[in-house]
Amino acid sequence: MSKVILITGASSGIGKATARQLKAAGNIVYGVSRRLDKMSDLQAEGIHTLQMDVTDEASMVNGVNHILNKEGKIDVLINNAGFGSYGALEDVPMQEAKYQLEVNLFGAARLIQLVLPSMIWHHYGKIVNISSIGGKVAMALGTWYHASKFALEGLSDSLRNEVRQFGVDVIVIEPGGIKTEWAGIAADNLMNISGNGRYKEMATRFAAGIRGNITSSSADPAVIADQIATAITAEQPETRYAAGFMADEILALRKTASDRELDDIMHQQLNIL
């Protein structure tokens, strides 16, 4: 039976791959993004597209209401919109820090608030929050990105226990390295913020690592689309799914290595010690 699915950040990467896969499976898919022009290919493939900015209240309210008025329900919300704000804590302006949390955390939370009443009324729903292995393991120069993803993990755990009584599942997806725009944006952001001054050497090494080994070894976004498809079709989904470059290895190390051991391993991977 087809589901009505809302995917944020559908203009590229994981969001676009997921929209295509779920539409091919026979679902009614709404892909939303700030960049409507970047989704013209999805529209041509029969995927509904809407302009939505997850930092803008009216944009979110109007988008959700449009879908509910047309379809009568939203079965699945996939909170995929997000980006990586990188730079040393000392360097990052607080306005930028707040924007990182607004996009990666508060936007997702507000959309959950907007779709939950319909899900609860239908006694069915799947809320999928795209986190990261960076929501379990933190590295230098990513303070606010990691803060946003650690917070999303905690939000998801608490929410899961609130809404399961209403037939709503909350699922966390933890990608490792994936071939998307994320790495380039994060590296550029890092160099703009901390490419000069006392963190210059570390930032330069880190940016080179993101653009180099990690990007070249990253997995196709389809591997995350597969995990999402598995999660939303399962009668009793797992609470977490992980895939992508180094995802399993890093999450395993999180369970077995000490904090300092893990720090050393991660820094050596990016050659920033």
Rank of each mutant, 00 (worst) to 15 (best):
S2Y: 04
T8L: 08
G9P: 13
I14R: 00
R20G: 10
Q21R: 15
Q21G: 00
A25W: 00
V32K: 04
R34G: 07
L36N: 02
D37W: 00
A44Y: 05
T49K: 06
L50Q: 13
D53N: 15
D53S: 03
V54H: 05
V54C: 05
A58G: 11
M60P: 10
M60E: 05
M60K: 01
V61C: 00
V61A: 01
V61H: 00
N62M: 00
V64E: 02
H66D: 14
I67C: 04
I67A: 01
K70D: 14
K70V: 14
D75Y: 02
V76T: 04
I78K: 01
I78G: 03
G82D: 05
F83M: 09
G84N: 06
Y86F: 15
E96A: 10
F106W: 07
Q113F: 00
Q113T: 13
V115E: 08
W121L: 01
K126H: 14
I127E: 02
N129G: 09
I130K: 10
S131P: 12
S132G: 03
G135A: 02
M139V: 14
M139A: 04
G142Y: 04
T143F: 03
W144P: 12
H146M: 03
H146I: 01
E153Y: 03
L159N: 15
R160H: 06
N161Q: 15
R164V: 05
R164S: 01
Q165V: 08
E174Y: 05
I178Q: 02
K179I: 04
W182V: 08
N192K: 15
G197F: 04
E201Q: 11
T204V: 12
T204P: 13
R205L: 13
F206T: 01
G209S: 07
T215H: 11
S218M: 07
A219M: 06
P221D: 02
P221T: 03
A222F: 03
V223C: 14
A225F: 03
A225C: 10
D226M: 07
I228W: 08
A231Q: 11
A231T: 09
T233N: 15
T239V: 11
M246I: 06
T256D: 02
E261Y: 07
D264G: 07
D264W: 06
H267G: 06
Q268I: 08
Q269H: 12
L270F: 15
N271F: 10
I272G: 12
I272F: 06
L273H: 14
